[in-house]
């Protein structure tokens, strides 16, 4: 009986050699046991040393190997090939919407710049106590589903709004972290943070397309966090109306 053959179509581009990117076809005998897409890439790289991709932890916590697998963004290291195989075919492309450095490696400068823009660090200018600042378990629970982000960029690079305005719309990953600090009872810059988010682009270019939710490999929900930011922005405005009688 003929063995099962996997057919892999991979996006290839080396700026020193190729004028344009192209799709290269690889064939490999289907492994007896289910393996992850990252293991498959290792096998291919043993055949063809020139294939380039990022990887580190190989267990879904470092966020290095986000890529587009059969049309959907995900982490290669925790995507079993059995879960994505269609007629024994796999198509691997870099994350969409960011410049490609080489093969499956994208330039994430813009993505990181948006993350830095939301001031992703705790701001609390009061004198720190000798021990820790206290936080109730209920308040700490508010950070669950937010702090676990691994900055893999699967969400932002699946978001059409981020594709159109990657410089002005913060994108789901940065907004998830923006809310992580808004939700932290230890952070005291809530108003300043909201002020910086209140322009028409930073938050409001989210149109609830929800690709971020379906592509997050950690099961997080940036859309929900963005909704909460929008609520806070509205509530902020209401407070201004009641205190001054006018809307700014």
């Amino acid at each position: 009986m003929a063995k099962d053959i996997l057919e892999i179509n991979m996006y290839r581009y080396n700026p020193e050699q190729d004028k344009f990117p192209y799709i290269k076809n690889y064939s490999i005998e289907k492994p007896a046991k289910d393996i992850m897409v990252l293991d498959l890439l290792h096998l291919l790289k043993e055949q063809d040393e020139s294939i380039s991709y990022r990887r580190s932890c190989r267990e879904g916590v470092c966020g290095s190997d986000g890529m587009n697998i059969n049309g959907k963004n995900g982490l290669a290291c925790i995507t079993p090939i059995s879960s994505i195989l269609k007629n024994n075919k796999i198509e691997l492309r870099p994350l969409p919407g960011l410049p490609v450095i080489r093969d499956l490696v994208v330039d994430m400068t813009e993505f990181y710049a948006q993350y830095e823009k939301i001031k992703p660090f705790l701001q609390n200018n009061t004198t720190a106590p000798e021990q820790e600042r206290l936080q109730s378990p209920a308040d700490r629970d508010k950070l669950d589903g937010l702090y676990e982000c691994i900055l893999c960029a699967c969400c932002s690079t699946s978001c059409p709004s981020f594709w159109w305005n990657p410089d002005k719309f913060l994108g789901p990953a940065a907004l998830l972290q923006a809310y992580r600090f808004l939700a932290d009872t230890r952070d005291l810059k809530t108003n300043e943070r909201l002020d910086e988010l209140s322009d028409p682009f930073s938050v409001y270019r989210c149109h609830g397309i929800m690709n971020c939710v379906s592509s997050c490999p950690k099961g997080l929900n940036p859309n929900k966090a963005i909704g909460k930011i929008k609520t806070m922005l509205l509530r902020d405005k209401k407070e201004i109306i009641t205190s001054d009688g006018v809307m700014n």
Partner: peptide, 15 residues
């Protein structure tokens, strides 16, 4: 903790 590390908490609010 002061830098913002989201430690889990006991009921009394401590780490």
């Amino acid at each position: 903790e002061h830098m913002g590390l989201p430690f889990s908490r006991f009921d009394n609010g401590r780490i």
